[in-house]
Amino acid sequence: MNTKLRPKMDFDQLFAEHDADFTKSEQKIVDFFRRNMDEAPFLSAAEIAQRLNLSEATMVRFARTLGFESYPALREALQENFRSRMTHSARLRGRIHDLREAGDIFERLVASEIDYLTEAMQTLDRECLNAAVELLRTHKRVFIFGLGPSVSLVDLLHIRLTRVGKQAVRLDTSGQEILEPMLLMGKDDLLIAIGFFNLTPTMQLVLNHANQRQTPVILVTDTLGPLVSEKANVVLAARRGPVSAFHSLTVPMTIINALLLALSSADQENVMAHLDQLDQMRAKLRGAS
């Protein structure tokens, strides 16, 4: 049976309905979910199994006991349930409450950003970062996708990539305007897709189109990697703090800055030539004014 839960279904109710079916090991999993309902949906079976000193096979059996075909199917339903409950306003209210409770809002915010950056140092896969740099180095035209708050990251990438000689194409609208530039995408191009928390229909469309055109994909994300990793050549994933919190863009912006600096180092001759040319043009512009 393939259980498909309604977005706002109570998982406590589902656990209660199957309580008599759980083994002792599976009851440990239930207890873990009940204590960690904000974090658990975004952990893999291996991560939870390690924390509980269980096997991954036990995690799979647990999902099937609940009526799911696999553990990834259960996790997808848990994430859907979480996202339906955790609205932007709820996350912001919670964040403001936490900061006020701690006292100085600015001080606590800076401290939490430092904590998230420190965590990102441990979790960002350096081999993936190196692979992303190589894709950037070897592709002239780069499409950059991002919506909502991620548009500021699109701006950053567009400016910096243009400065080092790349042809950067923005994909930062969710309407029909995004379709025309997408038609230019081909196998000799590169797509950098930026997305967090929700896998939007527009993001799905862009990723599917890139795959159809055989365009390599770099995905910058926090929790979406497991959902769309098969659509990306490289996933640059780092958590931005608790999933239920209101997030800034400090961590993904740092990842992008690291990517751009590593590109400049790997392709220094070409990058410096373009920057020198830019400086010359700026000097001429100043002289003409």
Rank of each mutant, 00 (worst) to 15 (best):
F246T: 04
V220M: 06
T200M: 01
T221C: 11
M253F: 04
N208W: 11
K231W: 15
D222V: 11
V220S: 10
Q204Y: 04
S244E: 15
M203C: 06
Q214G: 08
L219F: 15
G241K: 03
S248Y: 13
R240G: 03
R239G: 10
A193I: 04
S229Y: 11
P226N: 07
V251C: 04
Q214K: 15
T250L: 13
V234P: 05
F246K: 05
N208S: 13
T202W: 04
T202V: 14
L207Y: 03
F197T: 08
H209S: 10
E230V: 13
R213Q: 14
I194P: 04
T223D: 12
P252R: 05
T221A: 09
G225D: 12
D222Q: 10
F197P: 02
F196N: 05
T221N: 09
A238K: 00
L227S: 08
E230I: 10
V228P: 02
R240E: 04
I218D: 08
A210S: 13
T254V: 02
S244R: 07
E230G: 06
H247E: 10
A245K: 06
I194W: 01
I194G: 01
S244G: 14
I192K: 02
A245G: 11
M253H: 02
T223M: 15
S229M: 14
L249R: 14
A238M: 01
V220I: 14
T215N: 12
I218T: 11
P216S: 09
N208K: 13
A210T: 09
R240I: 04
Q212M: 12
G241P: 10
A238C: 05
Q214D: 12
R213S: 10
R240N: 11
S244K: 06
R239N: 11
I255D: 00
P216W: 09
P226K: 08
A237S: 14
S229E: 15
P252F: 06
I192N: 00
L199I: 04
I194F: 02
I194Q: 00
G225E: 14
T223R: 14
A210E: 05
I192Q: 01
L236Q: 01
S229V: 07
T215M: 13
P216V: 08
I192G: 00
P252A: 05
F196T: 01
T254C: 05
I194C: 02
F246P: 04
V206C: 00
L227H: 13
N198P: 03
H209F: 15
A232N: 08
A237E: 09
V243L: 07
Q214M: 14
Q204P: 02
R213K: 14
H247Q: 12
L224G: 10
L219S: 10
L219T: 15
T221F: 08
N211G: 14
V243W: 02
R239C: 06
Q204E: 08
R213Y: 11
I192M: 03
L205F: 12
I255T: 03
H247D: 07
Q212F: 08
I218N: 05
M203Q: 09
T254A: 02
I194E: 00
V206N: 01
T221Y: 07
P216M: 11
N233I: 09
R240M: 06
V228Y: 07
N211R: 08
E230Q: 12
V206K: 00
N208C: 10
I255C: 00
L224V: 05
A237C: 13
P252G: 08
K231P: 03
P252S: 06
